[in-house]
Design a binder for these strands. Structure first.
Lengths: 202, 202
DNA sequence: CTCTCCATGTAAATGGTTACATGATTCA
DNA sequence: TGAATCATGTAACCATTTACATGGAGAG
């Protein structure tokens, strides 16, 4: 389990409600972690019971009241300890890749449509990351920002997310073209960027 | 649940034992799906009970006997249906990214060491993908292979895996350098490749 | 003689998803 | 009048991880 630590990490940027965090876990954060609202509500309750976060009620008018949480000293210590512990291996779950792996056993054109759709969502995410990075950077150039800012974590992970989505866009788009070309008997396109480690064979 | 479909997809390339598949799910396949041996043994048992795969015992000398599985007609049909169904959204779980997000709350140099270590494993995976792709391609060039081969799924997903690991290598390496430069007060390095959607601000 | 690889599992515990539940406000 | 947003949860179910269990062969 480490939704726990993803939640603590998110609270480093200041207090937040379960609802707000659920939104973030579906856009920004979703590049390295994913969670549903129900999970966050549960996790925040457990973290508060363990003394790692502490919540206060915020009364609102015209909308439901909410409960915002912030890190406690114990929470910061746990986060620091977590950072220095060895990491578990990462993983990806991507159904579309499973489908491409098995494309010979199904409808390649239907799959190409799904790839196009996913390419569109990648495009949307790229735009969001671009804005996020620009906002964090403010009016500094990147190198100055990275040298001087007291908070660079979200910027660094944002760059990884941006690169990932750009790779997705390229691969989804090109793969859909390859599948259509094979189905239509037209010539398959070349990859947009050659990859060094992978020498053309002969 | 879709370990089920990842297993069926893997069996498109021919029969395999649970043990063999467990190895693949930790190297090749691990770029889009991940599973432990226990899960695979269980899933294969369920799939066989459901008639989607069928197994036979292979008696071996000098090593334990094994049970190899192959797709049934029902299994192929399920795979075809799966490919045309809408896909669930993908997700990544990457503890190291959570740590980078929270780097201000912990030991940046310890984290840089972890990033270096992960960069090394990325390098190893890049080499494996290079070999896998070359093997699949045989003596054809990529475009010809993609146009003419009857089995391109593993090649296409291999390319995505290769690109992913190369992005990992670049980002892990550069991020470790940034963290060390900040800790030492030396100048932070620039990113190796500029990213288009992310205009230098001003 | 110890470690790793081959090969397959069971059981318990933890984690994640799906379905259900509520209710006011704002926008089209 | 219907849908989306804000806001928080419970309960049941399913999936995944961790721990445990076994045992022969070959390499160092």
């Amino acid at each position: 389990m480490s939704l726990r630590h993803a939640v603590l990490a998110a609270l480093l940027d200041g207090e937040a409600s379960g609802y707000q965090m659920a939104k973030n876990f579906d856009v920004a954060v979703s590049n390295y972690w994913h969670a549903l609202p129900q999970q966050l509500y549960g996790e925040l309750t457990r973290l508060e019971a363990g003394g790692l976060v502490s919540g206060r009620d915020v009364v609102q008018t015209g909308r439901p009241n909410k409960r915002v949480f912030h890190l406690t000293e114990a929470g910061r210590e746990e986060l620091a300890a977590f950072i220095s512990r060895p990491s578990k291996v990462s993983f990806i779950r991507e159904e579309l890749l499973v489908k491409v792996q098995a494309v010979e056993g199904g409808d390649a054109l239907a799959l190409a449509d799904q790839l196009d759709e996913r390419a569109m969502t990648a495009l949307g995410k790229i735009a969001l990351f671009g804005k996020l990075l620009a906002r964090l950077r403010g009016d500094l150039d990147e190198t100055t920002f990275l040298a001087e800012s007291s908070r660079i974590g979200p910027y660094l992970t944002g760059l990884r997310g941006l690169a990932f989505e750009q790779e997705n866009l390229e691969w989804f788009t090109w793969t859909a073209e390859v599948l259509r070309a094979r189905a239509n008997g037209t010539t398959v396109p070349r990859r947009p960027r050659p990859i060094s480690a992978d020498q053309p064979s002969g």
